[in-house]
């Protein structure tokens, strides 16, 4: 009943065709726009961002100081929680959920390779996440500006782009989870555990270890920064604060030892997390297996 991977491979050309990847991506975006999750996430992110922007102390009340810095800081905290959840569950559910409904089998019965199907799905979801993140930041930015917040538009855009990079890094991890799990529900469950680990347990673990072992600040910084969510936070903080020296001795250590290259280091960490998990997921998906 199930077509073997070998048979599917026979029907398509060796090199992936961009046209087909684009077709799958478009289908994925169309699905996203019609689905509840997209509007739920986009709506939740925009509403929360808007609430944060509007609850900042109005700039006029604290003459000489705009509320923008605080808005940006709150948005980073929000992004840190909600964007990994969004990216992980979305990625995890995509392949596993389609496998469960038979949609994946139907898709691969067309003259299309697994590579094309995979990257089409990834690009489609990445675009949907882009719309969610930029829509949310756009709404927050308009409200922050209406509050009379002193504006640093460039760093605001930087934080939005960093948030999207975090989102697609999490999407990659989600897709990787998807290649391991049979059903949509177990994929979602696994992704929530991974989310808990990245957002809470990772930091708590480093804190606990630091207290228990009297870890030097260099080790504390290095072990924290491996976490993509931490790397994102620190990169976003440097984007609007300019420096990490407000973060106590460990932040001071980071500023002193990396200086100007700190930004590069943090973005490199995020970039590795964007590229690595999705590549492994692609490799696992394209080598065959049950659909």
């Amino acid at each position: 009943m199930t077509a073997s991977p070998a048979e599917v491979q026979v029907t398509v050309s060796e090199r992936p065709e961009l046209r087909l990847i684009a077709a799958v991506a478009k289908k994925e975006i169309a699905d996203a726009v019609r689905s509840k999750w997209f509007w739920l996430w986009a709506g939740a992110f925009a509403v929360l961002a808007a609430i944060l922007a509007s609850s900042a102390l109005p700039g006029s009340q604290v003459a000489g100081f705009g509320s923008f810095g605080r808005t940006a800081a709150s948005l980073v905290a929000l992004a840190q929680i909600i964007i990994p959840l969004m990216g992980l569950t979305l990625g995890a559910y995509s392949l596993a959920g389609q496998r469960e409904t038979g949609a994946l089998r139907f898709l691969l019965s067309h003259p299309i390779s697994r590579t094309e199907a995979f990257w089409g799905t990834y690009i489609g979801l990445a675009t949907a996440l882009f719309a969610t993140v930029f829509g949310g930041f756009g709404v927050a930015g308009v409200i922050a500006a209406a509050q009379g917040g002193g504006a640093d538009a460039a760093s605001f855009v930087r934080i939005a782009i960093l948030s999207w990079l975090l989102a697609i890094a999490m999407l990659g991890i989600g897709l990787l989870i998807s290649t391991f799990t049979a059903s949509g529900s177990s994929a979602i469950g696994t992704s929530i555990f991974v989310w808990l680990g990245l957002v809470f347990l990772g930091d708590l673990g480093v804190m606990g270890t630091a207290v228990a072992t009297k870890m030097p600040v260099s080790a504390l910084f290095i072990s924290a920064v491996f976490n993509p969510v931490e790397a994102f936070r620190l990169a976003a903080l440097t984007a609007f604060d300019g420096s990490l020296d407000v973060l106590g001795p460990a932040g001071q250590y980071a500023v002193d030892s990396f200086g100007e290259s700190l930004d590069v280091l943090l973005i490199a960490v995020v970039a590795v997390w964007v590229v690595a998990p999705v590549s492994v997921a692609w490799w696992r998906f394209s080598k065959g297996g049950d659909v």
């Binding site: 489609g124 675009t127 719309a131 930015g141 308009v142 500006a145 209406a146 917040g149 640093d152 538009a153």
Partner: peptide, 23 residues
């Protein structure tokens, strides 16, 4: 805040176009 308003609207527009155009 004019710059921030402009950039924010642009971000919003780019986000909408990214999903509206393909679908």
């Amino acid at each position: 805040a004019r710059e921030l308003v402009a950039v924010s609207f642009l971000m919003l527009a780019v986000g909408v176009v990214a999903v509206a155009f393909p679908s």
